[in-house]
Amino acid sequence: MHSSLPDFDMPSDEQVHLAAETFRLLADPTRIRVLWALLQGESSVACLAELAGAAPTAVSQHLAKLRLAGLVKGRREGTFVYYSAANEHVRSLLDQALFHAGKIDV
C-alpha cells in the first residue's frame, strides 16, 4: 500500500536508531533543564548544577552523554570547561517538546 505512494520514503534503520537514541537522552528532566540553560548561553558545570538543582558530578555525567550525542559542545579555558548547545537544532527539539508539554508557544 505505502509503496504505491510516489514520495513515500522510510528512514534507514540507522536513522531510526539514532533518532530513538536522541529521544532517550532527552527523556531526563535534569538533561532538559541543562539543555534549556545552555540555550540561554554558555555555562560551567557548577552554574548548570545550580540551575538544574542537581549535584555537579551528576550534571557532569549528563553533559558527557549529551556531548557524545552531539547535543552540546565544550570549550576549555584553563582548567575550566564551558558548555553550550551544539546548534539551533537543539533549541528546535526542546521547543517542540516543551510546546507539546504546554510550556511555550512556538
Rank of each mutant, 00 (worst) to 15 (best):
S4T: 14
S4M: 09
L5V: 11
P6V: 12
P11I: 08
S12C: 00
D13E: 12
D13C: 06
Q15Y: 06
H17Y: 14
E21S: 11
T22F: 03
L25W: 04
P29A: 09
P29T: 05
P29N: 02
T30H: 04
R31D: 04
R31M: 03
R33M: 06
V34Y: 01
V34L: 03
L35A: 05
W36P: 00
A37E: 06
L38E: 00
Q40A: 15
E42S: 10
V45Q: 02
A46W: 01
C47W: 04
L48K: 02
L48F: 00
A49L: 03
A49I: 01
E50I: 12
A54M: 05
A55T: 05
A55D: 15
P56A: 08
P56G: 07
T57D: 15
T57G: 07
T57I: 10
A58D: 12
S60N: 09
H62L: 02
H62E: 13
H62V: 01
A64H: 13
L66Y: 05
L68R: 11
L68I: 05
A69S: 08
V72R: 03
G74I: 05
R75Y: 09
R76L: 06
R76F: 01
T79K: 09
T79S: 11
F80T: 11
F80A: 14
F80E: 09
V81S: 01
V81E: 04
Y82I: 00
A85D: 03
A86T: 05
H89L: 12
H89M: 14
V90H: 02
S92C: 10
F99Y: 13
H100F: 13
I104N: 04
I104G: 04
V106D: 06
V106I: 09
